[in-house]
């Protein structure tokens, strides 16, 4: 079903810089809608290093990455941002009126006057194993995410990977699938000890098969996946029946569709004017790690600064007939919507 949203600014990327942009836009009475491919806000801070300390946020001598995101969520709450999470922006259309139509992978449509790309290093996408016919079976037995668990009921499932997500889904699906095989290249797991213990227990009980020191080296099937080839460290190969193959090797950022939006790029980053972090496409700004300019530093604090300057110019697009007056929050406070 099509889901439609109308907003002043559509922010692509809900990492720290995208979130803070809501605050700067909000001070100038502009409403924001954020889209992120990840199912949660926070970008790489939440996805890659939630428990790591950050030491260079002004005024916060040390802050845990996840805590910084929680603080930002609190800081922008008065401006009531709306979110589309777990969806990827696939298309951006500029109308003759100057406004934009943004369409996501799940057909959410956002209409906005301004686009702010705060996409970090790009869209987080699954790491894929190097298998010659992998693409052919995508959606025909090969899934990189477990979205609908019922899909696996009574099925033969092969999961590959050694991280927490491979362990967790093996445990969860062991009660649902007909048969689970977990394939991992090492001889041990370094995930959460609780999960590791559970997986070993399931294997001892015969509820799952563990293929350790092994890799999936081939996929077999016609239109639909029928089996995978598991190759052991000694080179021996064994076909295993598989309705589904779920490789869970974590996520890595890719520039993705941004590359097709007519923006000037340099080394996979978007070139901007440092006056206001505008791109070459009027109405589209790029802030944070995704942009590049002479002297660029990929620091969260730089992204915050960029968000503030971006908002001043965005104001003139959202309110073309109004004069902008700069107000200090210490004098006027923060007035939400």
């Amino acid at each position: 079903m099509e889901n439609k949203v109308k907003t002043d600014i559509c922010i692509i990327g809900a990492g720290p810089v995208g979130l803070f942009a809501v605050f700067e836009a909000g001070l100038l009475k502009m409403r924001c809608h954020l889209i992120d491919v990840l199912p949660q806000v926070g970008g790489q801070l939440t996805e890659i290093y939630p428990q790591k300390p950050i030491y260079d946020i002004p005024g916060l001598p040390e802050v845990n990455a996840q805590d910084l995101i929680e603080n930002l969520k609190q800081q922008i709450a008065p401006f009531k941002p709306t979110f589309t999470l777990g969806e990827k922006v696939v298309e951006v259309i500029k109308l003759e009126t100057g406004e934009f139509i943004i369409r996501t992978s799940e057909n959410t449509i956002v209409e906005s006057k301004v686009i702010v790309i705060a996409g970090g290093l790009g869209c987080f996408e699954p790491r894929k194993p190097e298998l010659t016919n992998l693409v052919r079976f995508e959606g025909r037995g090969v899934n990189y995410f477990v979205k609908n668990v019922e899909q696996y009921r009574g099925k033969y499932v092969v999961i590959a990977g050694g991280g927490d997500s491979a362990l967790d889904w093996t445990i969860y699906l062991s009660d649902i699938a007909e048969h689970i095989t977990l394939v991992h290249r090492s001889e041990s797991f370094r995930g959460a000890p609780d999960s590791v213990d559970k997986v070993y227990a399931l294997a001892r009980e015969g509820k799952i098969d563990l293929a350790l020191k092994a890799n999936v080296s081939g996929l077999i099937g016609e239109d639909q996946l029928e089996a995978v080839v598991v190759e052991n460290a000694d080179g021996t190969k064994l076909p295993i029946i598989a309705d589904y193959f779920v490789p869970l090797f974590g996520l890595t950022p890719k520039l993705g569709p941004i590359a097709n939006w007519g923006l000037n790029l340099h080394n996979a980053a978007i070139e901007v004017d440092t006056f206001d972090y505008a791109t070459n496409v009027p109405g589209i700004f790029a802030i944070g790690d995704i942009n590049t300019y002479p002297g660029k530093l990929k620091l969260i604090l730089c992204g915050f600064h960029e968000a503030a300057l971006m908002a001043q110019s965005a104001f003139h697009i959202v309110y073309p007939n109004q004069k902008r007056t700069f107000k200090y929050t210490t004098v006027y406070g923060v007035h939400g919507f």
Partner: peptide
Amino acid sequence: TFQELETLDTLPDAT
């Protein structure tokens, strides 16, 4: 380190 091994464990092409 343990951290390095943990990350390597999640890669499809690690050896």
